[in-house]
Nucleic acid binder design. Structure first.
Length: 108
DNA sequence: CTATTGACTACCG
DNA sequence: TCGGTAGCCAATA
C-alpha cells in the first residue's frame, strides 16, 4: 500500500527539483525511480498533485508535448506558466525541448 | 472479480 | 512528430 504512495511522493520530490526554466518527462522520472514502465503512473501522480507544491507544468511527455494541459485551469495556463519561465511553446509543444530538458538522473 | 480509462512510451509501416 | 497499435500499471466503476 505504501509503495504506490511512496512512488507518488518521490515523483513530487523529483518535480520540485526541476530547475527554473527547465522541464523533464514522465518517463525520465519513472526511470529515475526505477519504474521504467511506470510513465503513466507519474502522470497519475501529477493528477493527484493538485494542492501540493509541485510544478507539474514542468513535466511533459517525452516529445515535449503539453499533454497534461487539460488538467490545469483554463486551456493555456500550463503554457503560460512555462512561457513565464522562459520556455517557448508552439502548438502545445516545447520549443528546443532538448535544450531545456532536465534529466533527474544526471542531476543525481 | 472483470472492464474501462488515462498528464506514457516503443514499435511498426 | 507521422498515425495507429500494443504494452504497461494503477485507479475507478
Amino acid at each position: 500500500m505504501q509503495d504506490s504512495a511512496l512512488f507518488f511522493d518521490k515523483c513530487y520530490d523529483v518535480v520540485r527539483r526541476i530547475p527554473y526554466g527547465k522541464v523533464t518527462s514522465y518517463g525520465a522520472i519513472a526511470r529515475y525511480l526505477g519504474a521504467a514502465k511506470g510513465a503513466r503512473m507519474v502522470g497519475y501522480a501529477m493528477t493527484a498533485s493538485h494542492g501540493k507544491d509541485v510544478p507539474a507544468h514542468r513535466v511533459v511527455n517525452r516529445k515535449g508535448l503539453l499533454t497534461g494541459k487539460h488538467h490545469f485551469e483554463g486551456t493555456n495556463l500550463m503554457q503560460q506558466l512555462l512561457e513565464s519561465e522562459g520556455i517557448k511553446i508552439e502548438d502545445n509543444k516545447v520549443i528546443e525541448f532538448e535544450s531545456v530538458f532536465w534529466d533527474p538522473v544526471k542531476s543525481h
